[in-house]
Design a protein around this nucleic acid. Structure first.
Length: 701
RNA sequence: GGGCGGUUAGCUCAGCGGUAGAGCGUCUCGUUUACACCGAGAGGGCCGGCGGUUCGAAUCCGUCACCGCCCACCA
């Protein structure tokens, strides 16, 4: 007998364990049924379940269980992501607690330590997914750094390299001085910063008392200036073009160049050009063949090596001793010192308060530093073309469709993708260097050696492997096929690629969806999924973004403990409309918990009245108005619910289930059934029992 | 600067060309043996403003306002 009180915490784990143990979630590659595939967006192995996970996995599980009940051969592929930076940071923090720096123990031992951490703590998220009720095919669980997926990564890298789509290049990157690695454009976020705009007088060479004034928010970078640019049509400066200014402090002669980049409206209309520390300036530098000295090191400290030979004393303008005193100084301290020195030299015309957007590392939290380094790049523009076309021609469809615009906008203007990271945890780049710097890209060290021997015409040259690892998204971009055994030609690969639906949030359309489209099409010749369902963000009940600093985080596990996974899952469905964020608070879950309770009690009523599943019951033979009516209503409800799911309308789906269960079944059918059931053993009572059991089981499904 | 989304009952939202809907909350009534985490019923909205198209507009078009987000930009 069902308990009087519904206690999900006693029921849900038992049911889940039973399902998992009996293989209820397993795909069957040998089945004749039509497959239905969803690849889980692999959560970070460091992760623990948050509301965003609860939303995305509830939506996925809803689709998965629905298709499974329709008889499809369902694969919901589980797994986790090695999450390069995030994981490395977690383990570094643990080491720091023991007073150990990763550099102390060296690369190999550090990586060993990360694997050890993963073995001990890496299973948190998958345990929590089970508590949510997610019906993933667990025995197929993969990890982006396991052997098979690492093979796929090497295969892709080597192939793209040989096709000329991966190359090394020396150009400006977004450098995170705290993590000391390059990061991609997507990992940079602009933050509004209240700073100053310093107007600095640069003396004109050979014309005592005349200056050209430049405005800058970053006076410390002036050490690396190699030109001043003015707009070609700017009459104020026409006579100065082609002449030289003297760079204060340093004494370098700076050509005054005409370039469209200079905006007469901004600042003074004359802009200092620091090619090695600003993306726009870099382009100007290339156009005018300017030197590009770096004056900051990888920790964003002043480094004078590249300008040491141009330091020139100039009376009242430049003092090499001062500049040398800056060597090794942090960029912020250097800024202060430089401003003070300019003031002392009376070269600071004025200082204005200035609010502007400053690019920050979205992980390290510090301002990024554009730095001139050699990195590996992927020619994304070439890979993007067929991906754009696939969406244009509807091979892949976004739901809601408006996200296609977002996808197109980014893909049509895609920049070279910097894929190397100066980290230890990740897929090490399969490139080896000879003593003269020649590059050998190969699957293994041994193959690289063979290539090197051929190249040098002799054996035995010592090769050194590239120290860098690949961007995490490089490997997760392969997820739709690497998890299925590619580059092996597996039965799974043939059967479950392409996937049916990808479910994710708009925040990773660029990071992940775009990369899967590009790499999937390139290597599989076919889009990785037919539909991309984009859901919103989970916010708190007031519509605020959840964040640690605001203290408004809602823990889904707490909600599950208190109200049950079903209540949380139903709430999520009910609130998930198209293209809308989900505002969720405990009160909403509580109100839908009542729905689950209602259903529990309806089942209890059935049980008390001898209503049991009856295989011999045939709804086609129902004869009473009451039973014929409820069966008809049930079929309509099923139609509504199915149509809602076909259209990815989880809100409508929940509403259809809610309405039929509560209003139709409980409030009307059960009430009308009571007098009939009182009759005990009559033919009518028998039919009502059979119908009730039949309808209840349909509701449960 | 470019783009996207939103603005409908107290709250959260659906409806997107044919006389305003749901859930929650509110109010009234109800000690019916599944359920008070219940049942029956009620009240509540010039559908952000203005203009246009139409026999007819919350729904289509234009425009403005406010809220939120994305992309670009360290002069």
């Amino acid at each position: 007998m069902l308990d009087k009180t519904y206690t999900p915490s006693e029921i849900e784990p038992r049911l889940y364990e039973g399902w998992e143990r009996t293989g209820a979630f397993a795909a069957d590659p040998n089945s004749n049924a039509r497959p239905f595939t969803i690849m889980i967006p692999p959560p970070n192995v460091t992760g623990s379940l948050h509301m965003g996970h609860a939303l995305t996995f509830t939506v996925q599980d809803t689709l998965i269980r629905w298709r499974r009940m329709q008889g499809r051969d369902v694969l919901w592929q589980p797994g986790t992501d090695h999450a390069g930076i995030a994981t490395q940071m977690v383990v570094e923090r643990l080491l720091a607690e023991q007073g150990v720096d990763r550099r102390d123990i060296g690369r190999d031992r550090f990586i060993e330590r990360v694997w050890q951490w993963k073995a001990e703590s890496g299973g948190t998220i998958t345990r929590q997914l089970r508590r949510l009720g997610a019906s993933l095919d667990w025995p197929r669980e993969r990890f982006t750094m396991d052997d098979g997926l690492s093979t796929a990564v090497r295969e892709v890298f080597v192939t793209l390299y040989r096709q000329g789509l991966i190359y090394r290049d020396r150009r400006l990157v977004n450098w995170d001085p705290k993590l000391q690695t390059a990061i991609s454009d997507l990992e940079v976020e602009s933050l509004e910063v209240k700073g100053s705009l310093w107007h600095i007088r640069y003396p004109i060479e050979g014309e005592a008392g005349r200056f050209i004034t430049v405005a800058t928010t970053r006076p410390e970078t002036m050490l690396g200036d190699t030109a001043v640019a003015v707009h070609p049509d700017d009459a104020r400066y026409t006579d100065l073009v082609g002449r030289f200014a003297i760079l204060p402090l340093v004494g370098r002669r700076l050509p005054i160049v005409a370039d469209d980049y200079s905006d007469p409206e901004k600042g003074t209309g004359a802009v200092k050009i620091t090619p090695a520390h600003d993306f726009n300036d870099f382009a100007v530098g290339q156009r005018h063949s300017l030197p590009m000295p770096s004056i900051l090191d990888r920790q964003a400290r002043v480094a004078l090596a590249e300008i040491a030979d141009v330091l020139t004393p100039v009376q009242g303008v430049a003092d090499p001793a001062f500049v040398r005193s800056l060597d090794g100084m942090d960029r912020n301290a250097a800024r202060k010192a430089i401003v003070a020195e300019l003031e002392r030299l009376e070269l600071l015309e004025k200082t204005e308060p200035h609010t502007h957007q400053v690019p920050h590392s979205d992980r390290g939290g510090v301002p990024i530093e554009p730095l001139l380094t050699t990195q590996w790049y992927c020619n994304a523009a070439v890979l993007a073309k067929p991906a754009i076309e696939a969406v244009e021609t509807g091979k892949t469809v976004f739901v809601p469709q408006q996200w296609e615009n977002t996808f197109f906008a980014w893909m049509r203007d895609i920049q070279p993708w910097c894929i190397s990271r100066q980290l230890w945890w990740g897929h090490r780049i399969p490139a080896w260097y000879g003593p003269d710097g020649a590059v050998f890209v190969a699957y293994t060290a041994a193959e690289a050696q063979v290539a090197a021997d051929a190249h040098y015409g002799r054996g035995g040259e010592t090769l050194t492997q590239d120290e860098d690892v690949l961007d995490t998204w490089f490997s997760s971009g392969l997820w739709p096929f690497s998890t299925l055994g590619w580059p092996e030609n597996t039965q799974e690969l043939a059967r479950y690629y392409p996937g049916d639906v990808l479910v994710t949030g708009f925040d990773i359309i660029f990071f992940w969806v775009a990369r899967m489209m590009m790499q999937g099409i390139h290597f599989m010749g076919e889009v990785p999924f037919r539909t991309v369902y984009i859901h919103g963000l989970v916010r708190d009940e007031r519509g605020q973004k959840m964040s640690k600093s605001k203290g408004n985080i809602i823990d889904p596990l707490e909600l599950i403990d208190r109200y049950g996974a079903d209540a949380l899952r139903f709430t999520i469905c009910a609130l998930t409309g198209p293209g809308r964020d989900v505002k969720l608070g405990a009160a909403r879950v509580e109100s839908y918990r009542r729905f689950v309770t209602k259903l529990w009690n309806a089942a209890r009523f059935c049980e008390m009245n001898g209503i049991r599943p009856d295989a011999s019951f045939d709804p086609a033979h129902a004869s009473l108005p009451l039973t014929r009516w409820i069966l008809d209503a049930m079929n309509h409800a099923i139609e509504d619910a199915s149509a809602a799911l076909e259209a990815y309308r989880f809100d409508d789906y929940a509403a259809a289930c809610y309405r039929f269960t509560w209003d139709t079944f409980c409030d009307w059918f059960v009430e009308f059934a009571k007098p009939v059931l009182m009759e005990g053993d009559s033919v009518a009572a028998h039919e009502v029992r059979g119908t009730a059991a039949y309808v209840l089981s349909s509701i449960l499904r």
